[in-house]
Write a protein that binds this DNA or RNA. Structure first.
Lengths: 231, 231
DNA sequence: GCTTGTGAACACGTTCACAGCG
DNA sequence: CGCTGTGAACGTGTTCACAAGC
């Protein structure tokens, strides 16, 4: 009986984005119907998703854009600052470090790490790339909350282990690999080790996205069309 | 009644990746248990996922790595070539175009497009960046199957419209926006327009990943731990 | 014996209808 | 009267137990 579906969290992120767009257009009111249409889901879904976290609307009126936006930011933990390190400063890591939009949400890049001597010492986005050896001390000394993992797949588990061992609370894994919440040495049946107990791993895998796309092009009838608007 | 869960497709991609790793290590046999452990799911789940597509194992024995790999590649449509254009050749678009691993799966980048005059004409990964105006003709002339969309969010719908209009079969959307399967002009209640009927859209959204991560760090108990769950 | 394959039970997320309230 | 909020119905995906077969 945990409650909130993970899909709901993803949709909340979408609603928040829509609310920001509305605010930018100086539209101050919306409704579950309006949000639903913009998000490509049903109005039932919008109301149910919001209901998990509170009552943010006014019956007969709808939602006030700034209020709902503020509440969703609070729910999603976006009204606080998150200190982030990027591990792996290749092309993808640099694209991530420079991606506009991250800093809008109080995700602050405080450190960049790599093992490649060609990269270590260079400056990216105003930050000097450090060697992985410095990671544990840096994470502890700089109150780092999250690590973004953009290393090649065969180094992902090691790097994730380093992040978990250093004490980050979350890892956003861009590598096309399953991160195991345990030490590498004895991957067998081993218990989840202590340093992993509190670590959340989220995956962003665009090779997987490419492959799913290939599948759904070949099997269009199996595609989940959420857009279904009956009435 | 349609059948196959979308989550199953994502997991098949993971199984395939694991099988490739096993093959690289010259391990020739595996089992639902082994795959499950490596993928971070249950063995029931592995067997059920595979059962949607056929009988690939031998009872008492398990699965033969090359055979299961071949079958999954067939199922996922990865034993054929897919011609891809990248729309938006900023830092992210370049990282995508250069990402190793895409070409392993017969995803061939055949064209790069942008509107920025600083970028158009440059060469990236051996391809000259073309102006968006050339897109429709190029897509038709070069049998382009997919477009990868890496433009800023406020241009994503326009660019997606251009891709759909040009006749691609799928769009992998990296922009943090919901792509509407309709013409922009009259977004209201309008019908899904013809050029969108057959277009599959998959999203890869790492800003959303960052936000989900923030939420689950704040609410660890709500995190979906596939491994085991009591209460 | 061992491991796959699968119908049936279960749990979870989505849909719905309508109650609640402005 | 309109739109939100929500308990209940429904359908889909996951878990399970065991039958099938090497």
């Amino acid at each position: 009986m945990t409650g909130i579906p993970t899909a709901t969290i993803s949709r909340l992120v979408t609603y928040l984005r829509i609310l920001e767009g509305l605010e930018a257009q100086e539209i101050s009111r919306t409704s579950s119907n309006d949000l639903a249409e913009r998000a490509g889901v049903t109005a039932f879904q919008v109301r149910k998703d919001l209901a998990y976290f509170g009552r943010f609307g006014t019956r007969g009126m709808g939602y006030t854009v700034p209020i709902l936006k503020r509440e969703l930011m609070r729910v999603l933990g976006l009204n606080q600052t998150w200190n982030v390190v990027v591990v792996g400063v290749g092309r993808l890591g640099q694209a991530i470090a420079n991606y506009p939009g991250a800093s809008d949400y109080q995700f602050q890049y405080v450190g960049l790490f790599d093992v490649n001597p060609d990269v270590v010492g260079r400056t990216v986005r105003g930050l000097t790339v450090r060697h992985m050896d410095e990671l544990p001390e840096f994470v502890r000394g700089n109150k780092v909350d999250m690590g973004f993992l953009a290393v090649p797949p065969d180094h992902a588990q090691d790097a994730a282990q380093a992040l978990a061992g250093a004490g980050v609370r979350g890892i956003l894994n861009f590598a096309p690999t399953v991160i195991q919440p345990r030490m590498l040495e004895r991957a067998g049946q081993q218990e989840i080790s202590d340093e992993w107990r509190a670590v959340i791993v989220e995956n962003v895998d665009f090779l997987a996205g490419m492959k799913r796309l290939a599948f759904y092009i070949l099997n269009p009838h199996l595609n989940a069309v959420d857009t279904e608007e009956t009435e």
